[in-house]
């Protein structure tokens, strides 16, 4: 549908675009981390692209990513990063953009390795990403550099860890308050 966006992106930035793909009608572009802001600025300001609307930010934790081939189904077509600076990436941060005037959509992705969870914030470009990036920071611990107000949004400050990571147990609670007769210091 908007394959021409991907083509234009490749033509303009060349090596900075690691891979592109169209799947189920969604356009995805995997870009290099240090070129993210340049690409995003161009996407927003170029009249042929005109991605004025931010849609969402999220992150994918690839810790347990072992795709299974379902019976009677083609195998995975999801593009995988071979490596980032020689290491296997653990997280993929996704920004979904939409153009209101051009009616096309694009998902930008950046891969991060576990010990270096830093990526530029796109909040200065689209104010709508403000809370979305805070949410991703809260849930996955990705540090968005240049974000005006990066702190927890859903959870409380006393919470330790990032719950949507695959290695955080689902039922590990960190209570703030309990009844005294349940705690046992009655």
């Amino acid at each position: 549908m908007s394959q021409k966006v991907l083509d234009a992106l490749r033509a303009k930035f060349g090596d900075a675009v690691v891979a592109t793909e169209s799947q189920h009608g969604d356009e995805v572009a995997l870009v290099k981390r240090d070129k993210l802001v340049a690409i995003a600025t161009w996407l927003r300001d170029d009249p042929a692209m005109a991605f004025e609307v931010p849609v969402f930010v999220t992150c994918i934790d690839l810790l347990d990513w072992r795709p299974v081939k379902a019976p009677g189904q083609p195998s995975s077509t999801r593009p995988a990063w071979d490596n980032v600076d020689g290491k296997a990436p653990r997280f993929e941060v996704c920004w979904q953009l939409r153009s209101f005037s051009r009616r096309h959509r694009l998902r930008l992705k950046v891969a991060l390795v576990e010990n270096d969870l830093k990526v530029a914030s796109l909040t200065p470009l689209w104010s709508g990403f403000d809370w979305q990036e805070r949410e991703t920071f809260d849930m996955y611990g990705v540090e968005f550099q240049g974000h005006p107000d990066l702190r927890r949004i859903y959870l409380y400050d006393e919470f330790v860890g990032h719950p949507l990571r695959k290695d955080y147990p689902k039922e590990k609670r960190q209570p703030l308050v309990r009844r005294s007769d349940l705690v046992g210091d009655h």
Binding site: E171, Q174, R178, R179
Partner: peptide, 15 residues
């Protein structure tokens, strides 16, 4: 909702 943020019942805090 049995997870890290939902409390297993309000009676954890008050009778």
């Amino acid at each position: 909702y049995q997870n890290y943020h939902a409390m297993p019942g309000a009676d954890q805090v008050i009778p």
